[in-house]
Design a protein around this nucleic acid. Structure first.
Length: 587
RNA sequence: GCCGAUGUAGCUUAGUGGUAAAGCAGUGGUUUCGUAAACCACCGACGGCAGUUCAAUUCUGCCCAUCGGCUCCA
């Protein structure tokens, strides 16, 4: 499949070559579900100087048509090995290819392979399919256009990228496209609007979600569950303000290493202040408020801390990428001999929480600093090495010997483990993070008095399990498709009388359920039964309780499950028992 | 921030260089209903600012926002 995708990228590049004179080729790899190719499209003589031309959406069908012509010609992919000198000659008009060749030269590679497809020649490692006939002309599709930086760096030129997808058969392509459409329906932004969970407002500002009653309720329940679990696991609750003086952020190193993530300072009387991008320094202040004994360690402090970080406007996305968000943050301060246990316990707790929400596939990521760019990170070689080792050991002890290594992905103050989960669109999201910090203890001269009476510097671990409530909600809404489990549903059951005559009986049921702490509402609107049911289904209410003459006679309700449909008559007590059990089990 | 696209009522969409159309939602009324949309009426919109034009929602420019990517990240 990967070979087919990559070869289709070549075929597309060839079509582009035929249609757009003077196009320059960058790279065209296969990716999950498809492929892309990056091009530079020099402007026509008449256009503004120095500005590239872009593809327009109307170009895609034209390119597709040309590709179909090429496929019909049954062109062969021919491999050839050439020297670097020869390669440079072949690609003398292709600046990006030349740059790639130069990179290969630096790696002391002597020979490269090129693939020809008709009159299109590309620097490529291969392998490829034999002929274009292997691409079914109705099993590929060019999906979108995008800008993309050359070599993925913001400092480089922006190229034009065309994304496409290809499958072995039309049927598979159709299935894929259908899946994409289904996934779109689960998009948390759409569901958030339809279920009235949250909203965004231009005048409030970008990336600043407003939580509507139903969404705020679910968010609260999630927070409550997390917090209660932490308290049970020996954490203590603390709380800190949203702003702190400029001086604190200087002291902590954030203004030196994290300035681009912070908003500008503002004055209060004669002092300058900043919105907090992280909670840590404020917690450190509390730790330092009096001498600490080894007997107090490990100290685990948690808070639902709302932080504000500058994110470029183009990166904002619904709830999953915002500018103000609340972390289920915690800081663990411990002695060196407690480190391994604390890291392991934090990881165990992370898996427990995520599993409770029904996430199953996790990917562990170990982010370490970039050894070529040590200036961006605080701390010495030995500290980093030790901390990385400790994190690896902790992952291994919860059964994750395999992890993805992200070189350069560390935070400025230490290495970290990130746990990623996938949403319904298959996008991976970083939720949980466990970070080692050897910046703050030193900078703030954190101490504890050990058994031997000596003052020692403790270790500090940061961790957030849900990560941010906002992102978690975004991912979770998609995960459950807006149908929250009963324990989280803002409305757990709605009573629907078949006609106004039975509103009174509905009221009676409502009281009974409320006495059992079930979140219930009575739909006594003057609407038809069919309509009320439809609305209840759309609102994804777990249970609709239909009541009429039949039910009233035998003191029952007709239960409709949002997924299973009509469950038939049920005694009220039996329903209460059933729903309470589900709430208890967090199903 | 960068590249591209988009912006019509609360939502989903139609349409036009000369009075902007519909469904759902909302409001009022009729109806009193048995498992996914009863009926009638009413209310309600061209993202903002300039420019071109007798006339701009429509064309042009700028701005704002959204969407798809890049980059970045909880």
């Amino acid at each position: 499949m990967d070979i087919l995708r990559h070869s289709t990228a070549h075929c597309m590049a060839m079509a582009v070559q035929k249609l757009f004179k003077g196009v320059k080729f960058a790279i065209g790899p296969n990716i999950e579900n498809g492929f892309y190719y990056d091009f530079a499209l020099p402007a026509k003589a008449s256009a503004k100087a120095g500005r590239d031309r872009s593809f327009s959406p109307e170009d895609l069908p034209k390119i597709e048509k040309k590709m179909k012509e090429l496929i019909k010609k049954d062109l062969q992919f021919k491999k050839r090995e050439v020297s670097l000198i020869e390669a440079k000659k072949i690609f003398k008009n292709q600046p990006y290819k030349l740059e790639l060749i130069k990179d290969l030269q630096k790696e002391k590679i002597k020979k490269v392979t090129v693939y020809t497809l008709g009159d299109f020649i590309d620097l490529c490692k291969g392998p490829h399919i034999k002929t274009t006939k292997e691409i079914k002309f109705d099993a590929f599709k060019l999906t979108s256009l995008a800008g993309a930086y050359w070599k993925g760096s913001e400092d480089n030129k922006m190229l034009q990228r065309i994304y496409g997808t290809v499958f072995k058969t039309k049927k598979e392509l159709d299935t894929y496209l259908k899946q994409q459409k289904e996934a779109e329906k689960r998009d948390h932004r759409t569901l958030g609007q339809r279920l009235e969970l949250f909203m965004l407002d231009d005048e409030v500002g970008q990336g600043l979600p407003l939580w509507l009653p139903k969404g705020a309720f679910v968010r609260h329940k999630i927070m409550e569950f997390a917090l209660n679990t932490y308290l049970e696991k020996g954490y203590e609750l603390v709380s800190t303000p949203h702003i702190a003086s400029e001086s604190l952020w200087k002291h902590s190193g954030h203004l030196e290493f994290y300035k681009e993530g912070m908003y500008d300072s503002f004055g209060i009387e004669d002092e300058q202040y900043r919105l907090k991008p992280m909670n840590c320094p404020l917690q450190v202040k509390m730790y330092n408020s009096r001498p600490r004994s080894y007997r107090e360690l490990p100290l685990r402090w948690t808070e639902m801390g709302t932080v504000y970080r500058y994110e470029k406007s183009g990166t904002l996305h619904g709830l999953t990428r915002v500018r103000g968000f609340t972390q289920d943050d915690a800081h663990i301060i411990c002695s060196p001999d407690q480190l391994h246990k604390e890291l392991t316990e934090a990881l165990k707790l992370t898996l427990y929480i995520l599993e409770t929400f029904g996430f199953k596939d996790f990917e562990m990521n170990l982010s370490i600093r970039d050894p070529k760019n040590k200036k961006k990170f605080i701390g010495g070689d030995q500290g980093w090495k030790q901390a990385e080792g400790a994190l690896k050991k902790a992952m291994a002890s919860v059964g994750y010997k395999k992890y993805v290594l992200d070189v350069g992905g560390a935070v400025f103050y230490g290495p970290k483990i990130d746990v990623k989960v996938a949403d319904s669109l298959g996008r991976q999201w970083q939720l949980s993070t466990i970070q080692f910090d050897f910046n703050l203890p030193g900078r703030f001269k954190m101490k504890y008095t050990d058994k031997d009476g000596l003052n020692k510097e403790p270790f500090m671990i940061h961790r957030a399990i849900l990560g941010s409530l906002e992102r978690f909600m975004g991912v979770y809404i998609e995960h459950v498709g807006g149908a929250f489990p009963v324990w989280l549903s803002p409305v757990q059951a709605q009573i629907i009388p078949v006609g106004q005559k039975f509103n009174k009986y509905g009221e009676k049921i409502k009281k009974q359920l409320q006495e059992n702490n079930i979140r219930v509402e009575l739909n006594d609107n003057d609407e038809t039964l069919g309509k009320k049911i439809r609305n209840g289904q759309i609102q994804k209410i777990p249970y609709l309780l239909i009541v009429g003459e039949k039910e009233e006679k035998v003191d029952s309700i007709a239960v409709r499950d949002r997924t299973k449909g009509d469950l038939g008559l049920m005694k009220i007590n039996k329903f209460i028992e059933k729903i309470k059990k589900e709430i208890e089990e967090k199903k």
